[in-house]
Design a protein around this nucleic acid. Structure first.
Ligand SMILES: [Mn+2]
Ligand SMILES: [Mn+2]
Ligand SMILES: [Zn+2]
Ligand SMILES: [Zn+2]
Lengths: 143, 143
DNA sequence: CCTGATCTGAAATTGATTTTCAATCATAGC
DNA sequence: GCTATGATTGAAAATCAATTTCAGATCAGG
């Protein structure tokens, strides 16, 4: 899947008339080989050890491109930091967020999605995307 | 219910050993007589016409107190502005957010809440609060 | 190679929010 | 009521994430 995403991003770059650069390659590698839900700061720090010349602004700009291209999704867990996570073709999931240790559990639930659609259509509302996050304490932290 | 919330806030103030001030009263009145989902900026501007001497920082501080006391809830719709809405005793609802005109529809759905609990308990996770927002186009805007 | 458009890093800027601080105010006890 | 003490306030400065600016570097294509 790393291969597939690289290809997707290369295609996106080409379509948009953008350029393939050393920095974008490096940041893409770092992103794809990182944990999910990484904050920009975390990714930047991770990069910096091997590639100290890459600028902060470039990381911001490049992550935005990843999101535009569809290989990443921007997420906000309410801690004031923007995070990005990998996204697959058509894939969607929601999150359980531990407020003590910060761990994230991902889940998918077809029944909830279905009810959401029913609610929206009862108001004549067209859903484009949604956000469902359950905050609390993970099994370890509540013990 | 305005009465009840004023009383609740007065009690909160007393319990915490805080003081009842002219500014807090004014901001509370403005908040209680405002639309739901007001941004801090909006509330500040609304206040300023009648009470030009009230400072920005005081509005920020006071809204935080409202949230602490339980009469308000802080919400983030992803536009970079913090909003506050009125909350009733034990009451909870979620939101449909129109991305074109900004209108908000509130809804409650017992079935979704129940499934959320099931998901959480299947992971041994303890939910403290959650956030469910459906973004898209309202009936008017999609027409 | 050349050329022109895109990119980049560093620094400056923005915008929301928070903090600082000296002056003011509220209130509990006399 | 009056005072002492601690909380509160407004204005300005500071913070923090994110974005923009800009001059130099780099890419792609001819
Ligand atoms: Mn995720
Ligand atoms: Mn609401
Ligand atoms: Zn945890
Ligand atoms: Zn609308």
């Amino acid at each position: 899947m790393k291969k597939a995403k690289k290809k997707l991003f290369r295609e996106f770059i080409a379509e948009k008339g953008l350029k393939s650069t050393r920095q974008r390659d490096i940041i893409l590698d770092a992103f794809l080989s990182s944990d999910r839900h990484l904050s920009i700061e975390e990714l930047y720090l991770k990069l910096r050890s091997k590639h100290p010349s890459i600028g902060y602004a470039t990381v911001y700009r490049t992550l935005k491109l990843f999101a535009e291209s569809g290989i990443a999704r921007e997420i906000h867990f309410g801690d004031g930091q923007t995070r990005y996570e990998h996204t697959g073709e058509g894939e969607h999931h929601d999150h359980l967020v531990c407020k003590r240790c910060g761990s994230i559990i991902e889940f998918e639930n077809e029944a909830i999605e279905k009810i959401q659609d029913e609610i929206a259509s009862s108001y004549g509302f067209l859903i484009q995307h949604h956000k469902l996050e359950l905050y609390g304490l993970c099994a370890k932290c509540r013990a």
